[in-house]
Design a protein around this nucleic acid. Sequence first.
DNA 1: GGGCCCGCAGGG
DNA 2: CCCTGCGGGCCC
Length: 733
Amino acid sequence: MAHVSQLPCNGDGTCMICKKNPSPDDTFTCRTCATPWHVTCLSSSSCPQTLADALLWDCPDCSLADHPHLPLPPSIAGKIGGSDKLVVAIRAIESDDSLNELEKARRRQELVSGGGARLSDDDGENVKNKEGINGDNDVLAILDGNINCSICMQLPERPVTTPCGHNFCLKCFQKWVAQGKRTCANCRNQIPSTVASQPRINSALVIAIRMAKMEKSNITGGAPKVYHFVHNQNRPDKAYTTERAKKPGKANACSGKIFVTVPPDHFGPILAENDPQRKQGVLVGETWQDRMECRQWGAHLPHVAGIAGQSKYGAQSVALSGGYIDDEDHGEWFLYTGSGGRDLSGNKRTNKAQSFDQKFEKLNEALRLSCRKGYPVRVVRSHKEKRSSYAPEAGVRYDGVYRIEKCWRKNGIQGYKVCRYLFVRCDNDPAPWTSDIHGDQPRPLPAIKELKNAIDITERKGSPSWDYDEVEGCWMWKNPPPCSRKQMNDGNIVSGKKRRRAKRTLSAREKLLKEFSCQICRDVMTSPLTTPCAHNFCKACLEGAFAGQSFTRQRTCEGRRTLRAQKNIMKCPSCSNDLAEFLQNPQVNRELMTVIESLQHRNVGEEQSDESSKEVDSRHEETDAAADDIEMSSANNHNNLKSGMEVKPQRTDKFKSASARNGNSSCQARPLLEPPDVEQGTKGGSVKPENRGQQTSAAERKLKQTKKRKKSSNATSNVGVTTRSKRAKLTTR
DNA sequence: GGGCCCGCAGGG
DNA sequence: CCCTGCGGGCCC
């Protein structure tokens, strides 16, 4: 496949081999791609021998088996080797007009994923089967000759494919277009303006190149994590709540079941252990039909908002959906715009026009906190982002974790101040657009011009929580991730109003785990040690962590705990306090041990009363009363564990404190046995006890709302601007 | 394709 | 309880 010696004339008519400008008489024009080829530079085998041949001549690029973008007839496809089949199959998918982009993505995924992957509907052979690959005819060799960038002639990096079927590196293509050229460098066909201005990465080609590289470097171990499509299994049992929603499908649908077991405020990648269905976690490149589906897999939970986060806790994920024109996407890094600054009156959810300044508050502050802490932020890109080459063709795609290296405010395009964030990728898996088979390495920050005129610049001080470990060769938590402030229920995320219910249904074992788990092994502590910095561990775990006095336990990128070399420093795995002195003679926290043992001996099957299963966070003080408290707790006493341990058992860091505050404020003072359906509207004593068991119907709530609206509209009658909330209420009339 | 409208989740 | 939100389908 020595195609390097077979080159056509370029867009200027210059032969790319001899660099001369041949006259038309000295060229053959391909009947398929219309590219002119210099006769004297064509190999003799490629030259048409007769005049008739010349009229029906196909250039080397378009010769049947070689052309990267023409689907081969099945008869021919079936005759070539295994790796060829991959290329052929991908071509066939790409050129199948009957498939939409999402369907193509699914087919490509099936193609490249192991275990039951199918070549096509009528060919069951798994193309990953290496036995089918002819050694001296491997994929890379084939790809090398076929899909090179038409400009630099190398394997394309971030490949872009023109409608005429020629490939370019994204950068080469952009340079070409920037020179004002609007014809294909290979065949001179017109490049549509949409492609010229908004080229998209050809993800099928990315897969092919990456697989070829893996084949070549003999990397084994199953299918590469290149592109995953979520099968639509386990659709929510009860997805829709309104008649209007049932008709069209998704508008106004309530979101469906969450399939992963991470809490909603989980930071970082979603791991296999939190994916009970597929046991693989959320893979980079995974694509969903829309935000609702993306939500179901936990990558980005809000189904409208672009930022998931809490101002005092941090931001977990963002969506790039083209909602803000200031956004600037460079793939491995991008500039993100904060939320707000828009008038949402009139019952709007979004508004393209900005009408006031953004500030670092709410979700914008959450992002800033993630910046300061160096938390990993999951990033999803949506096809709705039209200006980015890195956006998926269809649906919503998970692109891995990024860190926010800096944030600032600047004057936005629309004339008002916007919050800005520099995101830089730091994932252990390669990005969906790169043919690289490895994840990110730490990279220097890009120079950002707009920083010159920026205000309120925040840069991270101190070490980031998520960072690259040279020893492990991967990104990992260097500081423990913040403890979740939210609850899970049966593996599903429990949100907002359902939270209180979940608290009541925690099993005794779960409570034990929640309150008395070792921060190393995550199981209920045995022989608990409480460090001077008030963190709790199993004695064995902590001592094991410093075996040889030169290691500390850290999380690996997969979330498992492992040992990390630490030059004779013995730091608390939770807060990095020096534990050298403490570890010389560590004493088991006997009080804590008594409590744990007592709780373990309780009948775990016994149905907990609401009060006894109330969050135990509120306990604070002494140890002596612990045993009594357990009894009291069993007797449904409200003050269970209230005067608990001398040292708060584990998770006593600020996140837990926040959690305690949260829990207390939202839950502690609520009446017992309040039916879950009677939510906010029945605050205090407004609902008589005998009515508590009944559901507040939607109609009733609306009536209430209407009454309230009447009140407020009386107070603010004839106000010109109808606010969204007012409008919303008006519509309930 | 753009405007309109809405349920819903979640922050505070 | 109120406000916010880079959705998504329908109608025109």
